[in-house]
């Protein structure tokens, strides 16, 4: 493999690995379950995409023909990551897990669990706007 292509693949690999690590750091560092959802769902998708891109390029060169079936995993994770995040969030709401205190709009959690429309939504927005003005 040519040198520039090899270094490009190496850079993509390292970027992917760093994003995977950041996702896991988010899982450890963030304060409550709802914020913890953000790290793994987003960062790991991009991390895996980077690794698979590198794998696709390397195996294309090894076999001498274009190999793109790695993209199937990326596509699959892209479709399933939001679904599993949504299911975990649903379960967390169902069990009434508390969010950290400074979370805004906590009155919505109970309504979301009942799948009811938000009753005080417009008023809470207006009061927020009033708070900001002075």
């Amino acid at each position: 493999m040519e040198f520039w292509l090899e270094s490009l693949v190496a850079i993509v690999l390292v970027i992917g690995g760093v994003f995977l690590l950041i996702g896991s750091i988010g899982l450890v560092r963030l304060p409550d379950i709802y914020t913890r959802l953000h790290g793994p769902t987003k960062a790991t998708t991009l991390g895996i995409a980077g690794l698979l891109l590198a794998s696709s390029v390397v195996s294309s060169f090894a076999e001498g023909s274009i190999s793109i079936h790695e993209w199937l995993i990326t596509l699959f994770l892209l479709i399933t990551a939001p679904v599993s995040a949504n299911m975990i969030a649903k379960t967390a709401l169902h069990h009434g897990l508390p969010a950290i205190e400074r979370t805004k709009g906590q009155e919505l959690m109970e309504q979301a669990n009942r799948q009811a429309p938000p009753t005080g939504m417009t008023t809470s927005l207006e009061s927020d706007a009033k708070d900001k003005q002075p």
């Binding site: 899982l27 793994p40 790991t44 895996i48 994770l77 975990i88 967390a92 069990h95």
Partner: peptide, 13 residues
């Protein structure tokens, strides 16, 4: 739920 999320991330890793 934290444990499920950790397991899910472990699969991906």
């Amino acid at each position: 739920q934290d444990r499920i999320l950790a397991l899910d991330t472990m699969y991906i890793n």
